Amino acid sequence: MRGNCAMSGADWRSESAYHQVKQAEAADMAWEWLRRDAEYQKDFRSWLRSKHSGATDHFRRKWGLTFSG
């Protein structure tokens, strides 16, 4: 499922909105959980506004994220 289409966030209470969850990998489930976390959302908005060079490393370490590239 990774890279194709994300699970819908429109109606997270609807079982039919998550018909692809059986094909989800652990990273997909972790992302769906994390992106709904209010503290993560607040931190992410703060990170977006940040102009500090070390902010990305701090953000990645705090949330256990890795970015390949």
Rank of each mutant, 00 (worst) to 15 (best):
M1I: 14
R2A: 10
R2E: 12
N4A: 11
N4E: 09
C5R: 13
A6R: 08
A6M: 02
A6D: 05
S8P: 02
G9I: 15
A10L: 08
A10V: 07
D11L: 12
W12T: 14
W12C: 13
R13D: 07
S14D: 04
E15V: 07
E15Q: 05
S16I: 08
S16W: 02
S16L: 14
A17W: 01
A17N: 03
H19A: 11
H19G: 04
Q20I: 12
V21F: 02
K22L: 15
Q23G: 07
A24K: 07
E25W: 05
A26M: 11
A26P: 12
A27S: 15
D28P: 06
D28R: 03
M29L: 14
M29T: 10
M29S: 03
A30K: 11
A30G: 02
A30C: 09
A30P: 02
W31S: 09
W31F: 12
E32T: 02
E32G: 09
W33G: 03
W33P: 00
L34Y: 04
L34D: 03
R35F: 02
R35T: 05
R35D: 01
R35C: 05
R35V: 07
R36V: 06
R36L: 06
R36N: 05
D37E: 09
D37Q: 08
A38V: 09
A38N: 15
A38F: 05
E39T: 08
Y40T: 11
Y40H: 15
Q41V: 01
Q41E: 04
Q41K: 03
K42I: 04
K42T: 12
D43Y: 00
D43P: 04
D43M: 06
D43K: 04
D43W: 00
F44V: 03
R45G: 10
R45K: 11
R45N: 09
R45M: 07
S46W: 07
S46Q: 14
S46C: 04
S46F: 04
W47A: 09
L48K: 11
L48C: 12
R49Q: 14
R49G: 04
R49T: 01
R49I: 00
K51R: 15
H52C: 08
G54M: 04
G54H: 06
A55S: 14
A55G: 09
A55R: 11
T56D: 01
T56P: 00
D57K: 07
D57G: 14
H58S: 11
H58I: 13
H58V: 13
H58W: 11
F59P: 07
F59R: 08
R60C: 15
R60A: 14
R61S: 09
R61C: 06
R61F: 07
R61G: 09
R61T: 13
K62M: 09
K62L: 07
K62D: 02
K62I: 03
W63D: 01
W63F: 04
G64N: 02
G64H: 02
G64Q: 01
T66P: 05
S68W: 13
S68V: 14
S68G: 13
